[in-house]
Design a protein around this nucleic acid. Structure first.
Length: 361
DNA sequence: GTCGGGCCTCTGGG
DNA sequence: ACCCAGAGGCCCG
């Protein structure tokens, strides 16, 4: 994956998550000043205490208590806002495999070369201005983006037109912004408007951005923990477990969409979007089958991790996924160039969230 | 505000 | 062989 202007390779074994980084020529950090580790921890959002959060959500909501898995975690990525925006525009009416391929095509065709790793070239995610040039829509159609080609092109134009830093100005000021350049324009939130609502509304003006995509960008890209993306699956859950789908809220209209989000926010509070993702994940049939079938048996858990840890192909998908499943606290070793170096601190194994893959277990 | 129809492309199921 | 619904939606009228 590309992370803050460098190539980062990730892989893992049952005990550790490993990474190594390659910087563009001339931009190599001086000795002991590679900040990849903190950036990675920030990106994967590894700091919050999952056990405590789960306890809070369970105390507030019996359904969550009943359905949420006990021994796995789901974490919300802290993605770059622009990347999240484009990624989720691509996600409409689409599956994860294809979305990943589309993101990859954007990087290869429009992103700056970062350098090579293992003999292979890697490209950064393109800037808005890179995608706001004539012929982009046509080209993206040829590349298989379908009707989303126009959305990406038009949204890129709109963002490129705006003041520099506009998108990051919609960010939650409470949320840590590690690695994000300071914004000159700063606060784009209108007076008297609560931050999340305002950010959501601003995003809706962009082409290809409806309420669901706007909430994904708010949650994953802008640090608004209370954003609750209501997709078809969450809508099913809301109907089955939270008494929606009848009377006033019989269909998923705009008003109903907001009502579902408000309900979850009132239940789960400031990190409602996180809780919702946990519940969502827990509800996936294949996933829950896996959980009940294999209890905390150590070997079996390890098998799961192994299957996910198969190198380069996984790297893209980890970046693209809206959620990352994280196992219990482990350690992260640091790996440099071709040989491993002494481990630094941390934790966590990352498991890709992907329904299709899960079937293979 | 709500409601249908259409949209790129791929895939699994009748 | 063929059609159709669905994929973590959105736009337009």
């Amino acid at each position: 994956m590309a992370l803050h202007g460098r190539i980062v390779s990730l892989h893992q074994d049952p005990e550790n998550l490993y990474y190594r980084s390659v910087f563009p020529k001339g931009k190599e950090p001086i000795k002991d000043e590679d900040d990849t580790l903190p950036l990675l921890k920030h990106y994967l959002n590894l700091t919050p205490n999952l056990t405590q959060l789960y306890a809070e959500w369970s105390a507030a909501d019996a359904n969550f208590k009943k359905k949420a898995p006990k021994f796995t975690g789901v974490r919300i990525l802290k993605q770059d806002a622009w990347e999240a925006l484009v990624g989720f525009i691509c996600s409409s009416n689409n599956n994860i495999i294809r979305i990943s391929q589309m993101i990859d095509k954007l990087c290869k065709n429009y992103g700056p070369l970062l350098g090579n790793m293992d003999e292979l070239p890697y490209y950064d995610f393109p800037a808005p201005s890179d995608l706001a040039t004539v012929g982009v829509e046509q080209k993206l159609r040829e590349l298989g983006f379908g009707y989303r080609a126009k959305y990406i092109y038009k949204t890129a134009c709109m963002i490129a037109e705006k003041e520099d830093g506009w998108l990051d100005g919609l960010r939650n000021p409470e949320s840590p912004v590690l690695g994000v350049k300071p914004v000159s324009g700063g606060d784009f939130v209108p007076e008297g408007r609560e931050g999340y609502r305002s950010a959501h509304e601003e995003l809706l003006a962009l082409q290809g951005v409806g309420p669901k995509v706007a909430d994904c960008v708010c949650l994953m890209g802008l640090g608004w923990g209370e954003a609750v993306p209501v997709d078809t699956h969450v809508w099913q859950i809301a109907q089955r477990d939270y008494k929606f789908g009848r009377g006033k809220h019989s269909s998923l209209t705009k008003a109903t969409y907001d009502a579902v989000g408000n309900k979850f926010r009132s239940l789960w509070g400031k990190e409602a979007g996180w809780a919702h993702s946990v519940l969502f994940t827990a509800d996936l049939k294949a996933f829950s089958e896996r959980l009940v079938a294999k209890t905390e048996t150590k070997e079996e858990v390890d098998v799961v991790v192994k299957e996910e840890a198969d190198g380069e192909a996984e790297i893209e998908t980890v970046e693209k996924d809206t959620k990352v499943l994280v196992k219990q606290v482990k350690q992260v070793k640091r790996e440099a160039e071709d040989e491993e170096k002494p481990l630094t601190e941390i934790k966590e194994n990352v498991v890709k969230k992907n329904k299709r893959r899960r079937k293979a277990y």
